[in-house]
């Protein structure tokens, strides 16, 4: 099953490599990973999406917690949560296709952020599923380039991940 794990860790050089190293060392897979400093510059917040059965996910969270640089973590998928991913996508847009791309982008609530006579660059935010659906709707024929940010997530309601 897919899990989204949010990790609060020391904003130190080398901390990220310890987390990434742990995943490769123990054979866990990373579907996506995002990391940046928080409002407290001494802390980074990382979101990892991973897949595994209960045994694997239990080990991932325990092993992450063992890393000295990891301050706190939560498996967001254990409760209600919001997940968002950003995509920037360059799409061929000529002739009749040009209007169609615009329409599809509007349906998905994407924004066209760059234009040339032959292409659009669309920015779109949402769950990973929604971004997958958009890519499918556009079709690989028309796609020139895709860049995805990886998932960021946060719990719904009062629950917060902080120290």
């Amino acid at each position: 099953m897919r899990h989204i794990i949010s990790v609060l860790m020391e904003n130190e050089p080398g901390a990220l490599s310890r987390v990434v190293g742990l995943f490769s060392q123990r054979g866990y897979n990373i579907e996506s990973l995002t990391v940046a400093a928080t409002e407290d510059p001494t802390l980074s917040r990382m979101t990892v999406t991973t897949k595994g059965d209960d045994t694997v996910i239990e080990q991932i969270t325990k092993q992450l917690n063992k890393l000295i640089d990891v301050v706190k973590l939560v498996d967001l998928t254990e409760g209600a949560h919001i997940e968002r991913e950003l995509i920037l996508i360059k799409i061929k847009a000529t002739g009749a296709q040009r209007a169609e791309v615009k329409r599809t982008s509007d349906i998905f609530r994407g924004q066209i952020v760059d234009v040339t006579p032959s292409m659009y660059t669309v920015q779109l935010t949402g769950s990973s599923d929604k971004l997958d659906a958009f890519i499918e709707a556009i079709g690989t024929q028309a796609i020139l380039e895709v860049v995805r940010s990886g998932v960021s997530g946060i719990a719904r309601g009062e629950r917060v991940l902080s120290i």
Partner: peptide, 14 residues
Amino acid sequence: MIGCSRPIVKHSFL
């Protein structure tokens, strides 16, 4: 050394 030893240390400091 930090990279080489990373999977086999409890922690390391540069």
